[in-house]
Design a protein around this nucleic acid. Structure first.
Lengths: 233, 233
DNA sequence: TTGGTGTAATGGTTCAACCAATAATCAAAA
DNA sequence: TTTTGATTATTGGTTGAACCATTACACCAA
């Protein structure tokens, strides 16, 4: 019904401001930032608050901080990570359908392989967990998340877990729209049943095929929604 | 000849210490950390220094910090990102061959698709850039990095760029070993020539095939090195 | 049971000062 | 002239104390 409001602390605001300056080209890779003391004065915040913001941007691969020297803008195309991309997308508020296409495309390459591996490598516990998830009375959205996570864990490749987290963060807002349509809910429920069966029966090829099908379906739907979003709202 | 020593500041050490506590199970998801004031006292550092460490772990998806409430350990399997995985791998110093297998496997799925897209979508500038890279007299290692980056940019999908950065960070140390062998250098040079040709000629299937071949080759070699590493050193 | 009120706990921010690493400069030595 | 080493200014790193803002919790009143 209502959506949560986001509360940002000062240092996050500072960080966003700097990111925006970099994205808009005001600050370029290689540029040296003013000293912390100056910068905090310019922004009218305390140096510590600024430092916490800088620390975050550093973690995102956006800055290079060197004691005794200074703070430099890094080229995020060379040093940025997916976490930074996520921040950028959230910052812009509206994810363009171009970017969404990119994300969905990568997911379509990766997730079927993940399902394949899960069907190969799943432990018996993971299999039981999947089956118990099927029976649980949960909102489709939560169930979908849980099943994908379980598949990732069953794959035996820890990277899938972290990559999946990225997708989940991106789709968190979009999922509500997607699952608000009954036909999508039904498609997902059918998918859940089938993929759990394939993985339980250790049928990698089938699992891969099933995962691919639901992703292609969701991809088309999602892009359609995005193109029509101005009509709907 | 000599390898660079890594200098860590206090707050990074603190952060690593906390990460280790989480990985070793001393701190579990859902656990509440002691208040900043207590924790800084326990660790014998200033509260600000501690806060910078916490800020970093928060960015890595490892903590949930709530003003007025407290600091909670998140389940990194649900909220962690690839950047966190990178930190974990660096922390443990030795990347086990299991993890390396996982990483190489994912790369083998992703990079050929990236090459495919690059051959489809490349701009003329990117094509020229690739060709000029080929001619440049550079250490193989650098050239290899630059060519992969150029392919990622030419793919038209921004995600490839960030995913590639992850791989590069992981393989940075390993590349030196790999490229120290003449046969690998030659394999890479041949690969560079062929992939640039395929992309320039807009032949997606060929580009994909070539990329896949070098990755399979490098994957086998790398894993072989890892298994024998105790003999070599 | 619900909604308000006050209090304690806890993260967020500010201020002022000093420590430590780096770069730039310049003088002495080769 | 070139190289080496000391000096100095700049800049990030750390510390300590104080206060602000939000939250959880216990309590009270309707």
């Amino acid at each position: 019904m209502f959506t949560a409001v986001s509360k940002k602390n000062l240092s996050d605001e500072i960080g966003d401001q700097i990111i925006n300056k970099i994205l808009s080209g005001v600050l370029c890779p290689g540029d040296k930032l003013p000293p912390e003391r100056d910068l905090s004065l310019q922004m009218n915040v305390n140096r510590h608050t600024l430092r916490e913001a800088l620390r975050k941007l550093d973690t995102l691969g956006l800055l290079s901080i060197r004691q005794g020297d200074g703070i430099y803008i890094r080229d995020f195309r060379e040093s940025g990570n997916l976490e930074l991309l996520k921040h950028i997308l959230y910052l812009r508020k509206d994810i363009t359908s171009d970017i969404m296409k990119n994300i969905l495309e990568i997911r379509r390459y990766i997730s079927p392989e993940m399902a394949y591996r899960a069907a190969q490598n799943r432990s018996d516990e993971e299999s039981e967990h999947l089956k118990s998830l099927l029976k649980q009375e949960l909102p489709v959205e939560e169930k979908d998340l849980a099943i994908h996570q379980s598949i990732a864990r069953g794959s035996g490749n820890i990277l899938y877990i972290f990559i999946l987290n990225f997708f989940n963060d991106i789709f968190r807002d979009f999922g509500a729209l997607y699952f608000s349509f009954k036909e999508n809910q039904e498609a997902s429920e059918k998918f859940h049943k089938n993929i759990v069966k394939a993985i339980t029966e250790k049928n990698p090829d089938l699992a891969k095929k099933i995962m691919n099908e639901i992703l292609v379906y969701a991809e088309n739907i999602t892009l359609k929604y995005m193109e029509n979003k101005y009509e709907k709202i």
